[in-house]
Structures are given as structure tokens and as C-alpha cells.
Simulated assay, not measured.
Amino acid sequence: MNIFKQLIKSIYSPKDIASFRTQGIGKTIGYVFFLTLLSVIPSIYFLSASILNGVNSLETSIEKDFPNFVIENGKLQSDEEVPITINNKEVTIIFDSNGIVKKEEILNSENTIAFLEDEFIFVSGGQQQGYAYSMLGDVSLDKETTMNLLSEANSWLLVIISIMAILIYLFTVSIRFIEISILALLGLLIVRILQRGLEYRFIWRMAAYSVTLSTVFFTIMGALQTTVPNGALISWLIGIIMLMLSIKEIPHKKDEQIS
């Protein structure tokens, strides 16, 4: 059975998930990489779009709406006494050199770029990044220099986005393997309760396919940019239920040992 058929079967068929327990571990690992790739596509897409739109909007806003400023000694300095907020369709841009806008307000927003008193914050697609101006060391930036840097950055955006996408994917894969391993440990308890003779390696394979339903569901929600309350808890419950139903499909033999 190819990987696409396994994906479809794993959404609704505990019986098929149970049958996958005897396949090679390499095929199961490949399936986890494939499933994770599907799951990160929406977040990578929206993050990439936000970065591209954000940089273009930021370049325009700095030129037209920002006052003259300089970043030196780890601080943003200007003659502007009140924060400037620019609301575009793609992104909200904030300029505040007086410490009036709090970091917590930015982190709770969506698609926001903020020049705060002592750091630059970028929030997009659920991802948050903050960079203290002190990281510049003795280098100082003024309005004109910042605009020149943004113009040069446009030519590197695709490379930067590609690197970010790879890092997000690798991080998500690592988390997915940890989740599957923990789910398989819970599967050992289920196996004892249901009195099925299964070793951990077979349970791990089944656990890898048991997370398919929740992964597909949350991928769709991510594509629709819809937040699911208590998403992590729901994901774990779906995985546990699918694994339990799959284990129940194993023949009831107390001392069964599959080779």
C-alpha cells in the first residue's frame, strides 16, 4: 500500500492501522516525515506571505510615515512623543520610541511588526520573533540606512524564507517523533488493559498512524486560519482513541508475540 492510501486509511480505519504494525520501521518513519510535511504547509505558507507583505509594507511605511530616528546604544531614539500605528490589510506596523507600547500587547496580536524602545518584534502566523537592539553592538542605524538594508533584504527574502521553512519543518518533525513515542508508551498501558501481546516497536508503528486523523484535522483548521480551543488536548485524545481502537483489532491472545 502506497503512502497516500495509508494516509487515507489511517484517517478512519483502526483495522488498517493495526495491520501496519508489521511493516518495516523505515516505511513508518518515512510516513511520519510525509505527514509532518503536510501539517506544516499552511503555517509556512502564511508565514512566507506575511514576511513578503510585511517587508514591502514596512519599507513603504518607514519612508512615508516614520519620523527620523536612530538606533544606537540599544535604544530607538526619535523626537516623536506618541506611538505611531499603521494598519495595513496585511500587517500592523508600530513605532514607539518612548516605551509606551508594551511587549505583551504585541505578542497577543497577529501579523504585527513593532519598533519598540529597546527591541524589534515580528509576529506572524502564530510565530513570534524578538530582537534586542543591543545585538547590533556599536553599530547605529538611522532611517535612511534602515531603508537601504530593507531594499537589499528583498533580494535575500526567498533564501531567508526557505531556511526558516526548513527549520520549522525539522523542529516540527522532532516534536512529532516525541509525541508518537509518548503515545506509544501510553499504548503499552492500553495493551496490558486489553491483554494484547504487543511489543513496544509494534505499538510505536501503530501510534505513528494513529495521529493521522488529528494531524489532518488541525492542518485543515490551520489552512482556514481557525483556532481550535484546547487543541493540544483534543489532539492527544484523538490519538489515544485511535490507538486504542487499533489495538482492539489485534487478536485477543494474552501471550501473543508477533515476530
Score class of each variant (00 low, 15 high):
Leu35Glu: 05
Thr219Phe: 05
Ile250Phe: 00
Gly126Leu: 11
Trp156Ser: 14
Ala49His: 13
Glu144Arg: 02
Glu59Lys: 14
Leu107Met: 09
Thr227Ala: 15
Lys75Asn: 13
Glu110Pro: 00
Asp65Phe: 14
Thr28Pro: 01
Ile84Ala: 09
Thr227Cys: 06
Gly239Met: 09
Val159Glu: 10
Ser13Arg: 02
Lys102Trp: 12
Ser50Glu: 00
Ile71Cys: 08
Ala132Met: 05
Thr219Lys: 03
Leu37His: 01
Leu76Asn: 07
Ile182Lys: 01
Pro83His: 10
Asn88Pro: 04
Leu7Thr: 03
Ile29Tyr: 04
Met221Ile: 03
Ile161Gln: 09
Asp96Asn: 05
Asn56Ile: 05
Leu150Arg: 00
Ser39Arg: 00
Gln77Ile: 15
Ser50Cys: 04
Glu63Met: 12
Asn53Ile: 02
Met206His: 03
Lys143Trp: 02
Thr146Lys: 08
Ala49Val: 08
Ser109Thr: 13
Tyr31Met: 03
Gly99Ile: 06
Met221Gly: 08
Ile106Phe: 09
Asp96Ile: 01
Leu76Ser: 07
Phe177Ser: 07
Ser140Thr: 11
Glu117His: 15
Leu194Ser: 11
Gly239Ala: 12
Glu117Tyr: 14
Tyr200His: 08
Asn2Asp: 15
Ala165His: 01
Gly125Asn: 04
Ser162His: 05
Leu47Trp: 09
Asp142Pro: 02
Ser181Trp: 07
Asn111Ile: 06
Ile240Gly: 05
Gly187Met: 06
Ile106Trp: 02
Phe20Val: 03
Leu233Trp: 12
Leu47Ser: 09
Ile161Cys: 03
Lys5Pro: 09
Ser210Phe: 06
Ile193Lys: 07
Ser48Glu: 01
Leu183Val: 03
Leu47Gly: 09
Val191Asn: 13
Gly26Ala: 06
Tyr169Ala: 15
Ile84Cys: 09
Ile44Met: 12
Asn73Arg: 10
Asn2Gly: 13
Ile178Phe: 12
Gly125Val: 05
Ala49Leu: 12
Ser155His: 10
Asp118Ser: 15
Asp79Val: 09
Tyr200Phe: 11
Ile11Phe: 13
Phe33Pro: 03
Asn111Ser: 10
Leu107Pro: 01
Ser50Gly: 15
Ile178Lys: 07
Ile84Phe: 04
Tyr209Phe: 15
Glu249Met: 13
Asn98Ser: 12
Asn56Lys: 12
Ile160Leu: 12
Leu188Tyr: 03
Ser19Arg: 09
Gly125Gln: 04
Met244Asn: 10
Thr212Asn: 08
Glu105Gln: 12
Ala207Met: 06
Phe217Arg: 01
Pro251Arg: 00
Thr145Trp: 10
Leu194Glu: 14
Leu141Met: 07
Arg205Trp: 04
Gly222Cys: 04
Asp65Val: 06
Ser19Pro: 02
Leu7Ser: 03
Phe115Leu: 09
Ser246Gln: 06
Arg201Glu: 15
Arg192Asp: 11
Lys253Cys: 08
Gln23Leu: 13
Pro42Asn: 04
Asp16Lys: 06
Gln23Glu: 15
Ser214Arg: 08
Ile238Gln: 09
Asp118Ile: 11
